[in-house]
Structure formats: structure tokens, C-alpha cells
Simulated scan of single mutants.
Amino acid sequence: MRLHPTAHTSHPWRIHEIAPDFRLEDVWRIPTPGGPDDFPHLVHQMANGREAHRSSPVSRLLFAVRWKLGALLGWDDPDTGLGTRVPTLRDRLPADLLEAPRGPDLKGVPIPFVSVYQTDDEWVAEMANRTVHGVLHVGWVQDPKAPGGYRGQMAVLVRPNGLFGTVYMAGIKPFRYLGVYQQMLLALGRQWRATAAERSTAGR
């Protein structure tokens, strides 16, 4: 379920101080109910799972078309990414985040997201190509519908590459909403429920 932007902007996330020049694209509720110490499990699942982007024929088709166009038009060439076209957000981190565990890179999707930092309730990964510099922000928040409970929350922040990047982001928005994000989050929820016993055992 998509959430109001204030679900992200009203929380004192560290990303606010690190990426103030990025635009908040959208915020999503992740159906992963848990306790206060379950955030590392969510990070591990998102970083290592491969089911989400393959969760429906629509998602598979959209990803296939996107990567074919990217290959033809050079959108994802090495010289358009992190450390070449744009510097990594790691260069902006304060000392405490640089010294803390970095967190895992995102391996479960075809887009190469590189981890920026991870805290007790926040994980940030980034990517860049010819169209955009994007940030995936995953947080662990209290769930008002489950007293004492927590759940995941995902925000997408972007800094488009000029007019071309802005037009590109506007053009893919309907496909992201209808064919990608919803299916990905549903798949995350299914996997979360399927591994409930494993998390319970690990917490003992």
C-alpha cells in the first residue's frame, strides 16, 4: 500500500541530512509485521531474495523491456553509474555512519543497488545510471494498527539526470505503481510469513 509522503518526511531518518537534494518519489508500507528487533531479518530478506522482481508475468515483462532498451540506448553503461557520472552518497556520510556496519548490497533485483549505510532501523542503498541517481530507503517503524508491533516501510528518493531523467521517471511511474512495486511488496510479505518460524527460532 502506498503511503502519504509524511510517513517518511515526518520521521527523523538520517537520510534527511545526507540526501536533502533528492526528491521523495513515493513511500510504501511493507507487509512485514514483527517485533522491535526484527529489522535485520527484513534487510537480509530484501538484500538476498530473488523472488520479488519475478513475482508476476507483468513484472518480468517490464524488467525485460527496460533492460533491452537500456542496452540499446546505453542507459546503464559503466560510465553512467556511481563513482563516474555521480559520486556515491558514502562521500556524504558523517563519521558515525562511516564507522558503522555498511549493510549488504541489494542482490535480489537486476538493478545494481549498493549499500550506503545501515542502522538499527534504517537501511539505505543507491544506484545510478544515465537517467537518475536513485536511493532505496528501508525503515523499521512502529505499526499503529498493531500496538507494540513494527513493520517495514520503503521510500524511493531520486535525483533525475536533467530533463531526460525527469521525463523518464514520469513515463515509468504508471508501470512502477501497477506492475512492479505492488507485486514486489506482496512477494516480500509472502516470504516474510513463510519464514516466521525461522525468525522465532533465531530470536531465542
Rank of each mutant, 00 (worst) to 15 (best):
E25N: 12
D120M: 13
L178M: 13
G179L: 03
G162C: 01
Q118F: 10
N48P: 00
L186W: 15
T32W: 04
S55G: 10
G149W: 02
L98I: 12
H137P: 05
A100E: 07
M169P: 00
P57T: 08
G35I: 09
W28T: 01
R151D: 03
L98T: 13
E17V: 08
P57A: 08
A196M: 11
D37W: 14
F63N: 09
H44T: 12
A128N: 07
L72T: 10
L186Y: 15
M184R: 03
V156I: 15
T201I: 15
G108Y: 05
I111M: 14
F22T: 09
G70E: 06
I18H: 06
G83W: 00
E198G: 02
V132Q: 09
V138Y: 08
L3S: 01
G35H: 13
H53T: 13
R151G: 09
W140S: 02
K145M: 14
A47W: 08
P12A: 01
T195E: 10
Q183Y: 13
A202Q: 08
P40A: 04
P144W: 06
I172M: 05
T32A: 12
L178I: 15
H44Q: 13
L157D: 00
A95T: 13
P110N: 03
T88E: 05
R29G: 03
V43W: 06
T88M: 05
H11S: 03
M1N: 12
D77C: 11
I15Y: 01
E122Y: 01
P12T: 05
V86C: 00
E126S: 11
G139D: 02
A128R: 05
M127E: 09
N129D: 15
L3A: 00
H44I: 06
L73V: 13
A146Q: 12
H8D: 14
W67D: 13
A197K: 11
T6I: 14
G203R: 15
R176W: 14
V114K: 10
T131C: 12
M154S: 07
G139W: 06
G34F: 03
Y177D: 15
G171T: 11
L186D: 15
V27L: 01
W13N: 09
S10N: 12
M127I: 06
A194K: 02
G165K: 04
L24D: 02
S55C: 07
W28A: 04
S55K: 02
R14N: 12
D38L: 07
T131Q: 14
G139T: 08
A64M: 12
V116C: 04
T131F: 15
P33H: 03
F22H: 14
A194S: 02
M46E: 11
L98Q: 13
